[in-house]
Each structure stands twice: as C-alpha cells, then as structure tokens.
C-alpha cells in the first residue's frame, strides 16, 4: 500500500515479531534490530527508513541513547515503546525529540494506526490532496472543495479538518 520502511528495535524477539506481523499486514516494509547498537548500524546503512519504533529498555545502548544518536543526524519520525509509565521518562523522551510515546502493554492495532498517523503528519505518506466522502482538501494549495465547489475556511478550521481527515478512524483526545 505504501511501501514505507520501518525499523523495529526491541530486545524481545516475540515483541518484534508481533509488531512486524501487524505492520506487514498494513503494507509496510520492516527491518528488525535487537539492541541500540544494531539499530544505529542498520539506520545509517539504510537511508530509506521512514520511521523508527524504539524500545527503551535494551542492552548495550538504551532507547534514549539510540534516539540521541539518531537525532544528531536525522529528523526521522520516532515512536517510543516502553514499559516505563513514569511521566518523567515520558517527558525525557519528548525532550529528546520523540514523535509518539506508547506504553506497554499496548494494542498492536493502535500501534499501527499511530504509525500511520505519524507518517502522515510528517508528510512522508501524506498525499498533497486528501479526499474523503466528497470533501477534497489540497494541503499544498490550502484549498478545500466540497463536491468540487471551493469552501472558505479560516486557518484554524483548515488545520482541524486536515487533522481529522488524517486521523480518520482514530479516537482523538483534546
């Protein structure tokens, strides 16, 4: 469907397999790494990686350190997976430049939906024109059409509409 390459980093083989299975079903390409060092090696080898799913607690190099390394060279979207639920840890992740934060245990379906959303938001898969139920949004031209007729929207309204369309099917919090 969209042939994006996703790097899944987790020291737990079964977790990697589960995430991989779900992502492949969604049409993504998946490469795996068992620790932070391996993840960095793979990341710098392969320039096509569109998103990194990063576990925090890993041997050799933990998720935070790996993220720091990646952020020095790349603004690739990163979603962190962790069993740590401390707000402090979460904040640390965001300070280091994480795009999403998912706490274990999680639903793989939600994980996949988040991956979709992050990719769309970052513009990797984001088509310039979104079309849902007769509503057509041209993001690059900032124009909205309903049944091919242009509609005037304020900037906020436009942003909100785009956000809703991009997160279609996901329960959103305020």
């Amino acid at each position: 469907m969209n042939d994006c390459k996703i790097l899944v980093v987790d020291d737990e083989v079964r977790m990697r397999k589960l995430v991989k299975d779900f992502l492949i079903r969604q049409g993504y390409d998946v490469i795996e790494a068992g620790d932070g060092e391996q993840a960095l090696d793979l990341f710098f080898e392969d320039k096509d990686i569109a998103l990194v799913l990063l576990d925090v607690m890993m041997p050799k190099l933990d998720g935070y350190e790996t993220l720091k390394e990646i952020r020095q060279y790349s603004q690739v979207p990163v979603i962190m997976l962790t069993a740590k639920t401390d707000e402090k840890d979460e904040l640390k992740g965001f300070e280091l430049g994480v795009d999403e934060y998912i706490a274990k245990p999680f639903s793989p379906k939600i994980l996949v939906a988040r991956v979709d959303a992050v990719l769309r938001r970052s513009g990797v898969t984001g088509d310039a024109v979104l079309e849902v139920a007769g509503i057509k949004v041209d993001k690059s031209a900032h124009q909205v059409f309903i049944d091919e007729k242009p509609v005037d929207l304020s900037f906020k309204e436009f942003e909100l509409l785009v956000y809703f369309l991009e997160n279609k099917g996901i329960a959103l919090s305020r």
């Binding site: 737990e12 079964r14 977790m15 589960l18 995430v19 299975d21 779900f22 069993a83 274990k104 245990p105 999680f106 639903s107 793989p108 379906k109």
Partner: peptide, 9 residues
C-alpha cells in the same frame, strides 16, 4: 503485552 498483542493478532 505479548499475550495481549498475540491474542489480538
């Protein structure tokens, strides 16, 4: 997490 995920799978 694994049990939940695999069951969902």
């Amino acid at each position: 997490a694994l049990i939940m995920g695999y069951a969902e799978g």
